[in-house]
Amino acid sequence: MKNNYLKLIMSSLILICVIPFSSVQAQTLDDYITRYTGENGPGYIKPAVESISSNMNSGWYRSAKIKKLRPQFYLGVVVMGAFIPEDNKTFRATTEGDFSPRQTVDAPTIVGSGESVTISGDGGTTYTFPGGADINFIPLAAPQLTLGSVFGTDVSVRYVTAPIGGEIGDVTLSGFGIRHSVSQYLPDLFPVDIAINYNNSTAEVGDIMKVKSWIAGVQGSYSIKILNVYGGFAYEKGNADINYTSSEGTNIDFNIDTNANMRATLGLCLNMGPVKLNTDYSIGAQNVLTVGFGIGI
């Protein structure tokens, strides 16, 4: 059997999402990408890249309260899940190679229907676009450490890595964020804590694929006893670079840009002493549900 790097890329994309918990599905997902080494490749993969990007941009905060100068930290696990919208299930795919006549149809994306689409051509020929994984939800999990605060500023980092073997190497998810309190410049009577944030995340699969995303926004929170209501508005964007040479010597070079989008987030955090349990929901290009658990002061 021939090696197929592109198959490994997609399985790695999914593997990024399940690093901390499961490797069960990775082998099965190896098979998905075979057909798309040409111009259809970016369209097929893009929804998964958007999900990973949306996930990486989620769960960074659970309060907008940042003291001006005081030790603050949070150490926890953040689990995010992006819901795949229906319009991400298909894309306009065009026949490739010497098939004639050239035709363009709606075909499943990597997250779309499992049923393939076959069209007929000259002289009894056919061309089939493969099905997708029929996924409605793509998860991601990562540990996160937040440290502060100096001049009303804190920083957050995420990092997780796992070897996936073979010639690919490691899958690594990393992220960095910085927040700055706006509340410190407002009168004390203002009841809502407000901060601005910028976060940058990267998911890498060896040296053949890199998914990058960033988000910048404004966030607010309001405390009621042990309950913290928080939310925000942000602007986010992501992209993926895929560059490899297949075992047949074909050089594949994809650059996939996700659309720049606004997102709105609303969440709740339960503070039980140092233990913090939070959940939030973001509405954006892909809606994301986040659950976080950690300790902090």
């Binding site: 918990f21 099965t28 696990v77 499992g114 099905g131 999990a141």
Partner: peptide, 26 residues
């Protein structure tokens, strides 16, 4: 509590990636 959280998360994830028959093209 931590273990319960991780197990619940795992179940949530694996249930989202359940085996589905997919037409692939070789």
């Amino acid at each position: 509590t931590i273990l319960g959280f991780l197990v619940a998360s795992s179940l949530m994830m694996t249930s989202c990636l359940e085996d589905i028959a997919t037409d692939l093209v070789g």
